[in-house]
């Protein structure tokens, strides 16, 4: 039996072995890409409608529900696909799959990201509240909340990626 075909233990991995993303960082990238893709797709549907007809006649609820659904499903499916791709890549490169662990550094980075997204979402909620007080059309209220949600999510992901890459 050829011993070199046996996968090596993760603990025997040399220091100069390629360093893949942790599962948490991979998830952040998937979250960022999926959220931005869904938001851009929503924008491509809604902006032409908003420019071509009165705002109170624009049908925005169904496209927004699709966008939110795509964000949720896309993040789940994307994370699974990325995990499989990472495992295959690690196996092909070195024969060792890094253990899937969430540690205190991941939790600290998640806290940093959450602080940013809470601030953005809080601002968005305040903006939507002001629009409601001014009796703005539901189009503006709904889309303000959605837009701040997308920006908050993107900011959270960027803060996390920055922490993973350049330090907490």
């Amino acid at each position: 039996m050829n011993a070199t075909c046996e996968p090596s233990s993760p603990t025997s991995m040399p220091d100069d072995a390629p360093v893949p993303m942790t599962s948490e960082e991979r998830g952040v990238w998937v979250f960022l890409i999926t959220n931005l893709a869904a938001a851009i797709a929503y924008g491509f549907v809604i902006v032409p409608r908003a420019l071509s007809q009165p705002i109170d006649e624009v049908s925005w609820v169904t496209p927004m529900l699709w966008a939110i659904g795509l964000q949720i499903v896309g993040t789940i499916v994307g994370s699974i696909v990325a995990a499989i791709g990472s495992a295959v890549g690690q196996t092909l490169r070195g024969g060792t799959i890094e253990p899937d662990v969430t540690d205190e550094r991941d939790k600290e980075i998640a806290r940093q990201g959450s602080r940013v997204s809470y601030a953005v979402l809080g601002t968005g909620t305040l903006a939507a509240l002001i629009l409601a007080m001014l009796s703005a059309d539901t189009f503006w209220i709904g889309n303000t909340i959605f837009a701040f949600g997308v920006v908050g999510s993107a900011a959270e992901a960027i803060v996390k990626i920055r922490a993973y890459r350049w330090g907490v």
């Binding site: 993760p10 072995a17 550094r105 993973y164």
Partner: peptide, 26 residues
């Protein structure tokens, strides 16, 4: 190795690397 140290304290190898490089204070 970094991987063994990581395994023994229950963190990722990436966290050990970040600590060694001064990018994270445990």
């Amino acid at each position: 190795t970094q991987a063994e140290l990581a395994s023994r304290i229950g963190v990722t190898r990436q966290t050990i690397i970040a600590i060694e490089q001064g990018r994270y204070s445990p």
